[in-house]
Each structure stands twice: as structure tokens, then as C-alpha cells.
Simulated scan of single mutants.
Amino acid sequence: MAIWNLGSINADYVYAVPHIPARGETLAATDRKVFLGGKGANMSVAAARAAAQVNHIGAVGHDGAWAKQRLLEYGVDTRHITTLDTETAHAIIAVDADSENMIILHPGANAKIPQAILQTALSEAQTGDWFITQNETNLQRTGTQLAKKMGLKVGYAAAPFDAERVKAVLEYIDFLILNEVEAAQLKDATGQDAKDLGVADVIVTLGADGADWYSRVGKQHFDAIKVDPVDTTGAGDTFTGYVLAGLDRGLPMEQSINQALKAGALMVTRNGTADVIPDLSEVQAFQR
């Protein structure tokens, strides 16, 4: 089977800082690096490195040819990434001495993906494939609705969180993943706990406390793997990509989550985003 990811593609400018800047504060960075990023790109790379066939649907500007090439090098099918007359999206990420981060996102081409690109891509999808999207692009409702109609399994990563956008796709999705804060925000917006949303599988990630999986048979908790983190950026996207890759390859949810927890644990011991996501051989060899 295959994964079709309507996803963002960013240039991530990562600055090492002694602490997260306060309001009005000017702060000198101690280091700066540029990575391929964006929640969509991160998930595509993670799923590809977890041995899934991944087709990315998205857009870059003329300044983003390098990002498209990097995705291709990481094993992602890039035929449905179009180049627009606008700038590639970028994120400014500050990472402090405790590995916490602050992110400023400029959406660029991610917010202007043509509907024709989405339709052309999904015309190649097969019943039973996965469609996944996140809240960093346009066409989310259109994509989930079309994918559901075609018989694809539909997943949604509810970040960056927007309650109205989540509510707009709930009736079309089979899989929802969000973090603890986002789950609380969604409950405030809908009045419903994760188990009551009508979605077959909901995963709430809990950072260092692991993850909770809500299914029709109840709730199951998974403990995190303890490591010494250096950068938490992209860890959640890595987890999501690995869960989807496991499910797409026919693994049960429990095994997919446990494998994803290993991948996320490895990820937080590295500085960077898509460029440093661990591959399946590293995850399988990881013992802790």
C-alpha cells in the first residue's frame, strides 16, 4: 500500500539560544543551522525511513528546489510537489538549553497548493491506501473528503491547532493524532473527550509521559522511552510518520506505537528536523 501526504514543506532556521526570548527581549543566538522541515515533510521523511511508500503532495517556491531534492533523496515520491511563484514556507525555531523550543512559521507556498495537484495525485491512489494531512496547508477538508470518498484510510494531525479546522474534518477521518494541550483545546471546543469524537483511532501524545491510544475498545497507555533530550523539534512528526508507516505495512496499532516511541526517543537526542530522522534499522536496533 502507500501513504499520500498533503503536507507542508519548510526551510527550518534553527537558532540555539540560552533561553526562550521574553516579550520585547533581544537575544543573541549561539548557533544557527538550516534544515528541511515542516510537519508534512517531517512526516513524509519519517514514514519513508520506516519503509513505507510515501507520496508527498505540496508546493514550494522557486527558492525551494533544494527541499524537493532533499525529500527525493530521503525516499519520498516528489512528483506531486509543484513550484509556485511565491516563496517557500519557512520557520524560525529557537531552542533553549533545556531543549524546549519556540517556533514562528511563515506559510508561503504551503497555503497556496492548487486543488488540481491534489486531484491529480489522488487519482493514482488505491483503495486502502492512507491519506494524511496536517494544519499547515490549505485543502485539508477537500483532501480528507475526497480521500474518504475514494476508500482511502484518512488520518489528520491536528497541529498547529485550530479547533474549527479539526471539527471540519472529523466526519471524514479514521485516525486523529494530537498532543495533550491540543486534546484539551479540542475538548473545550467540542465538549467531547478523545474517546467520544467518533474517530476510530485517536492518539494523544504526552511528551516524556508517552502516549494514550483511544479506540472502540477503550484506552491504552504507552510509556515513553527515557533518554536525555537535546532538541524536541520534529519528535511528534517523527512519531506520527512511524505510526502511519507501521499501520500501512500491516502492523497492529500497539506495535506501530511502540516502534514510533523508539523513533521519537532517538529523534530528541539529535539536533534538527527532517534531515536527522532515524531510519528503521536504527529504530529496530535501539535498546533502552
Rank of each mutant, 00 (worst) to 15 (best):
W4L: 04
L36G: 15
P229D: 12
Q140G: 07
M43K: 08
D174H: 15
A2I: 00
G58S: 08
A184H: 07
W213L: 12
A47F: 01
Q69A: 15
E25W: 07
T233W: 06
E254A: 13
A208K: 08
A22F: 09
M267L: 02
S215D: 14
A59I: 04
A67S: 13
V202A: 02
V60K: 06
Y172K: 01
M102R: 04
T78G: 01
Q126C: 13
H106C: 14
G58C: 06
D129T: 07
E182N: 01
L261T: 00
D31F: 11
Q115L: 04
G218A: 04
A89S: 11
G246Q: 09
I3A: 14
D237R: 14
A158I: 10
L280W: 09
Y172D: 12
A189N: 05
T133N: 06
T88F: 06
V17C: 10
I113F: 02
T30I: 14
M1V: 08
H90F: 15
V276F: 02
M102K: 07
G151Q: 03
Y74R: 12
F175M: 06
A200M: 15
I117K: 06
K187C: 13
E25A: 02
V14P: 01
G246C: 09
V217D: 15
Q69I: 07
E73V: 05
Q185F: 04
G234T: 12
A65M: 12
A163E: 12
T142R: 00
D223H: 04
